[in-house]
């Protein structure tokens, strides 16, 4: 079973994604605090990470940067979930090797298919 980790400070986003993915038989680790996100990732070793860009304390892009520097973790595909809808943001995000760039508001259905698509490529 695939394990997907979702990090967002908005509880309802977490809830929504969790509900959707669980329904599709994907294990979800939801995290509201970005502070020790990297630690949790290292521990959980998820197959996919869905990150919110804008979070208090440590932003999504910072987490992403840390992951890419870690040889163990750098191959985990990262979905960036953001309210920033500009092209430049997307460009910046892709620089950090972000697999998907999902702008809010998003369709949970579409997210799920994207997750499934990515997980399918990286099936363990």
């Amino acid at each position: 079973m695939h394990k997907v980790m979702v990090i967002d400070d908005e509880p309802f986003i977490l809830m929504m994604i969790e509900d959707k993915l669980k329904k599709a038989n994907i294990m979800v680790v939801a995290l509201r605090e970005s502070r020790d996100a990297v630690e949790v990732i290292r521990k959980e070793k998820p197959d996919l990470i869905i990150l919110d860009w804008m979070m208090p304390e440590i932003s999504g892009i910072e987490i992403c940067k840390t992951l890419k520097e870690d040889s163990e973790l750098q191959n985990i595909p990262v979905f960036m979930l953001t309210a920033k809808g500009q092209d430049e943001d997307e460009k910046l995000g892709l620089q950090y090797g972000i697999a998907r760039y999902i702008t809010k508001p998003f369709s949970p259905k579409a997210l799920l298919s994207m997750v499934e698509e990515t997980l399918g490529k990286h099936s363990p």
Partner: peptide, 12 residues
């Protein structure tokens, strides 16, 4: 940006 987050809830 500010509007997108609440909109996410509503739409999603």
């Amino acid at each position: 940006h500010q509007f997108r987050t609440p909109l996410s809830a509503i739409v999603g």
